[in-house]
């Protein structure tokens, strides 16, 4: 193993070790460590819940759980009505539009359409499939 590769593994091991220590800390201790260096808990909760809200809104419309931020409801309703076209070029265009206009698109999607990257057709289809599984998009059942 060359020295550089060894260093890569060492860094990964070090990060794992640090993460394990974080996992082992009791609640009081982790919450007491210099909060000024980290994000507000409510901001982290909002980050996590931004995904959860999309899922719950779609899958469980009868849910009585409160949603803290209703501002994206209109945007979400618009997304729910989107249907995936059969034409590959149109699918790519739809995905590109979603990635550029929606703030809650996964990182992987944004990277796929970054300046240096142009996703292949199978990659576009995989991303579309993921959005369908999430319930954000619907398949077009009509023939071309």
């Amino acid at each position: 193993m060359n020295a550089r590769l060894k260093e890569q593994y060492q860094l990964d091991s070090l990060l794992l070790g640090l993460e394990n220590e974080i996992l082992k800390l009791d609640d009081a201790e982790i919450l007491s460590e210099e909060a000024n260096l980290f994000a507000h808990i409510e901001d982290i909760r909002a980050l996590v819940n931004s995904n959860v809200r999309v899922y719950l809104d779609i899958e469980d419309s009868s849910s009585t759980l409160p949603t803290e931020d209703m501002s994206s409801d209109f945007e979400q309703k618009q997304l729910e009505s989107l249907v995936v076209p059969n034409n590959p070029k149109e699918r790519r265009k739809l995905l590109e539009t979603l990635v550029s206009s929606q703030t809650n698109m996964p990182l992987q999607f944004r990277m796929a359409f970054s300046a240096k990257n142009e996703p292949t057709e199978p990659e576009v289809d995989a991303m579309i499939a993921r959005l369908i599984r999430l319930g954000i998009l619907k398949n077009d059942d009509t023939d071309e």
Binding site: I22, L25, I30, F38, A39, I41, I44
Partner: peptide, 16 residues
Amino acid sequence: ALRNLTDADLRRLERI
């Protein structure tokens, strides 16, 4: 389960 993450768990995730 994600909705019910405690403050401590959220901080753990951030730190990780």
